[in-house]
Amino acid sequence: MIKVWLKMLDILLEEFHFSTMWNGGILLFILFGVIIYLFILPEDKNHKWWRTILFFTGLIILFISIGSPLNVIGRIQFSTHIIQIVLLLLFAPPLLIIGFKKKTMEKILSIPVLAKIMRVITNPIAAIILFYLLFYGYHIPVIFNNARIDLYLNYFYLLALFIAAFLLWIPIISSNRLHQKQKRYYIIANIVLLIPYSLLLLLAKDVLYMIYTDVDMFISALAVCLPDFQDIPKEFFQAIMPFNPAEEQPKGGWILLVSQLVIFGFSLFMTEKNK
């Protein structure tokens, strides 16, 4: 397995352009976020240094998930797509929320209209419904297959999922959205609602996504990352399809199941600890 991985990575580094592997637009967006955080947002004397570190860590994880070679490899290997989803939806949002400057949020909430909007979009019931509709909707095979062969549509879905995940995590992180018992049930509900997809990946007898099995669809999915893909022979794409989709699917299921149990389990532990 390691030899196959190294072979694929060697092919990617040799054939794929640097701009294909590393998304400059996403990097500029991240750097813009750093500049706003450091120099534009109002100073907060009570802001702890470790919160800044968590915020920057969240930005780095966000870039790794959608702007690094992980994004390209996720089009080749399904389990890597699941790693990408875990980083984007379960790791980055809580770190960004915890690290955000409270004084800035207080200024935003001091404006009645914005405060009302925030109360509506961070309503726990609305947040949980929105997130899981988008999450399961994106992973419906026909939608997933079509999204992966359209660069902008795929990024639109990922952006929508990230925003929904951000809203999903606010009731968990915030100290005034839910009381202790409600927060406990909310976290457990998230665990329960993610498990079915993990089990589907683990137990499905057939490969769910043709994007990883059909050569033509596979080429279309990578074509959006390769400006000059017409000059690349079909054999090249066949050479980087070494991963058995029937094995990748349950592997992705295990990654998702273990990751969400650890992350939400830790959140539940911290909630109980802070009683």
Rank of each mutant, 00 (worst) to 15 (best):
T271C: 02
C225F: 12
I211S: 11
F16M: 14
K251M: 12
D214I: 09
P93I: 11
V4T: 13
G33K: 01
Q249A: 09
V120G: 04
I170S: 03
F237C: 06
N190Y: 04
G137D: 05
I26T: 03
G67I: 06
A126R: 12
K48T: 05
V192P: 01
A126I: 12
H17E: 14
Y197N: 09
L90P: 05
K116M: 11
N274E: 15
E248T: 05
L159F: 12
I128R: 00
I172P: 02
H139Y: 12
D214N: 15
L202M: 05
T213F: 12
S174W: 04
K273W: 10
P42C: 08
V113T: 11
I35L: 14
S267F: 07
I64Q: 01
W169C: 04
G252N: 10
K102C: 04
L13V: 14
I263D: 03
H81N: 10
G265Q: 13
K45L: 05
L222M: 02
I149L: 10
I36N: 15
R177Q: 07
L203N: 11
S220C: 03
G265C: 04
I125D: 04
L208N: 04
I191D: 04
F55D: 03
L268P: 01
I83K: 11
L256H: 11
G253Y: 09
L90M: 08
A223D: 08
M270R: 10
L133Y: 04
F100M: 08
Y136D: 14
H139P: 10
I191N: 03
L208H: 06
H17M: 13
Y37N: 10
F91C: 10
W49F: 14
L168M: 14
L161S: 00
L90S: 09
K48V: 06
D44W: 13
A92N: 01
E248D: 08
Q249R: 06
I111A: 00
F229K: 06
K3V: 13
A147S: 07
I125F: 11
L31D: 00
Y185K: 15
E14R: 15
F39H: 04
P69H: 03
P42F: 05
L9A: 12
S174F: 04
E15C: 04
Y185C: 07
L200I: 12
S79Y: 09
D228P: 07
P112E: 07
N145W: 01
L109N: 08
P196L: 09
I82H: 00
F243D: 15
L201H: 11
M270T: 04
L87N: 01
G25H: 12
F229I: 06
S267Q: 11
Q182F: 14
G67P: 00
L199N: 02
L200F: 09
I11R: 13
A221G: 13
L257I: 03
V113G: 03
Y212Q: 01
I128K: 05
I66E: 03
K273L: 13
F144D: 02
K45N: 10
E15N: 09
R119G: 11
I30Q: 06
N190K: 10
Y132T: 06
N23D: 13
I170C: 03
V86K: 10
C225P: 00
S198C: 13
F156Y: 07
I187D: 15
S65Y: 00
D44Y: 14
H17R: 15
G253S: 08
L62T: 05
F144I: 07
L201W: 12
G58S: 08
F131T: 09
I108W: 15
M210H: 15
I232C: 07
F32E: 05
N190W: 02
V215A: 14
